[in-house]
């Protein structure tokens, strides 16, 4: 009887929100890692591409392939930067900074590596980007007290 009454009363209650403005907890550095892997692969492909000795047609085809590689590298580096910035500015909070004092330095380097990967055809910088994202991966999962193994798709 009393239970019924309290249930009845409770049903009239309005809602008080206790959540985040965005979808809660849907973050994963894997997004940045996948894009950075593409950047690394494309850098390799561009460096490996041989200029053809053949006719104009072969040259046009070469130009087309090279241009596509460059365009995709540019796009993927920008996406990697975007995903990194989302983690940096939305996921990580001041409390995390106490636990990971080099958090800002890591993200700053990672974002700069994205820019270098666009400006240059540099295996070294593409690898630097991957290394920085690996570090982000480690900090991210440590902040959630989860042990998630780092792996790459390629």
């Amino acid at each position: 009887m009393l239970e019924k009454l309290t249930k009845r009363i409770s049903e009239t209650f309005e809602t008080a929100e206790a959540h985040c403005d965005g979808p809660c907890g849907v973050y994963d550095p894997a997004q940045a890692r996948i894009e950075a892997e593409s950047v690394l692969q494309l850098t390799k492909k561009i460096l490996d591409l041989k200029r053809p000795d053949g006719d104009d047609k072969a040259f046009a085809s070469y130009q087309n392939t090279l241009t596509r590689y460059i365009a995709i590298k540019e796009e993927r580096a920008e996406l990697a930067k975007h995903h990194l910035l989302v983690l940096w500015t939305d996921y990580f909070k001041p409390a995390h900074l106490e636990k990971f004092p080099d958090l800002h330095e890591t993200f700053w380097k990672a974002a700069k590596a994205c820019s270098s990967c666009k400006q240059e055809v540099s295996l070294e910088h593409a690898q630097e980007l991957m290394d920085a994202i690996k570090k982000v991966h480690e900090m991210f999962w440590a902040s959630k007290d989860k042990d998630v193994v780092w792996y790459t798709a390629s």
């Binding site: 009363i9 409770s10 009239t12 209650f13 309005e14 809602t15 008080a16 929100e17 206790a18 959540h19 985040c20 809660c24």
Partner: peptide
């Protein structure tokens, strides 16, 4: 207090106050 309207109830929605309050709790 509730009956005499010195206080009122609200239903919690979301997980930002876990573990103190859970979605669906009435406060």
């Amino acid at each position: 207090k509730l009956i005499f309207r010195r206080a009122y109830g609200m239903r919690v929605e979301g997980d930002s106050m876990v573990p103190s309050l859970r979605s669906g709790d009435r406060v």
